[in-house]
Simulated scan of single mutants.
Amino acid sequence: MSSAGPAGTDAPAGGPPAAGFLVALEGGDGSGKTTQQRLLAGWLAQRGHEVVATREPGGTATGLALRQVLLAPAPGAALAPRAEALLFAADRAQHVAEVVRPALARGAVVVTDRYVDSSLAYQGAGRALPAAEVEELSRWATGGLVPGLTVVLDVDPATAAGRRGRDAGRPGEDRLEAESLAFHTRVREQFLDLAARAPARYLVLDAARPADAVQHRLREHLAPLLPVPSGPARAVAGRP
């Protein structure tokens, strides 16, 4: 996937370059994305930015319905890999149109918990779907919107599984979290491969380190990339 301007849009179909900045937090389940998003959003608001903290799937009302289908444990027939990829793309298309692009046009910093790379890792590598097809589907769904920075929170899948098991706030593993260690190993390797292909647009962080140390490195890297705040800071947006 190609890198682009300040907001990360590289497709004419998506309209003119946005004034804001898009940060995507990627990584395996249990890598700490939710914690890093919360810490980063608070720091950005303190610096005077409007911050939109969102997620995939489920960043819109439509996405919440799709999230139930995609992640709820399925006692019956398994969801076909291609159907899974299409549903994630549908969630992403609605998310970009309803939440991400309008926020970027206002000059906001959007911090999304998962974006295109999750489809390339989970459906491409995890489900062994053709990578080029998954990438093209995601590009079409987003109108070519590419993050200004993609942060990969890297952690060994076994360590991540242990974290999930210790988290009392989790209701139990969802359908993807419950996949095999081999599945999650393929996912991790794909995230690292994507980052290696475009190092200028990626930041890989050792998510096994303490959360505060990870956040410090993230802020240090992101600070010079951010646009000048467009106005008074606004409250951090919650998720649907």
Rank of each mutant, 00 (worst) to 15 (best):
Q68N: 15
Q68P: 08
V69L: 15
V69R: 13
A72H: 10
P73S: 03
A77E: 14
A77H: 12
A80Y: 09
P81S: 05
R82H: 14
A83M: 10
E84P: 12
E84W: 05
A85Q: 06
A85D: 00
L86N: 04
F88K: 09
F88S: 03
A89Q: 06
A89V: 05
R92N: 05
A93C: 05
A97R: 10
E98C: 12
E98A: 15
V100F: 15
R101V: 14
R101G: 12
P102M: 05
P102A: 08
A103R: 03
A103Q: 03
L104N: 06
L104F: 07
L104I: 01
A105N: 04
A105F: 08
A105R: 12
R106N: 04
R106G: 04
R106S: 06
G107H: 07
V109H: 05
V110M: 06
V111D: 10
V111W: 11
T112V: 12
D113V: 01
R114C: 10
R114W: 01
Y115V: 11
Y115M: 11
Y115R: 04
V116D: 10
S118Y: 03
S118E: 07
A121Q: 01
Y122P: 00
Q123D: 00
G124H: 01
A125H: 03
A125N: 11
G126Y: 00
G126H: 00
R127C: 07
R127F: 02
L129F: 01
A131L: 14
A131M: 08
A131C: 04
E133Y: 06
E133A: 14
V134Y: 09
V134T: 02
S138N: 15
R139N: 12
R139S: 13
R139Q: 12
R139D: 11
R139F: 14
W140V: 14
A141W: 02
L145T: 01
P147T: 03
P147C: 07
G148H: 06
G148T: 03
L149G: 06
T150G: 05
V151W: 04
V151C: 13
V152S: 03
V152G: 06
L153E: 09
L153Q: 13
P157Y: 02
T159D: 11
A160M: 02
A160I: 10
A161H: 11
G162T: 05
G162Y: 01
R163G: 11
R164H: 07
R164N: 10
R166T: 07
D167V: 05
A168I: 07
P171Q: 02
E173Q: 15
R175P: 07
L176H: 12
L176A: 13
A178I: 02
E179I: 12
A182Q: 06
F183N: 03
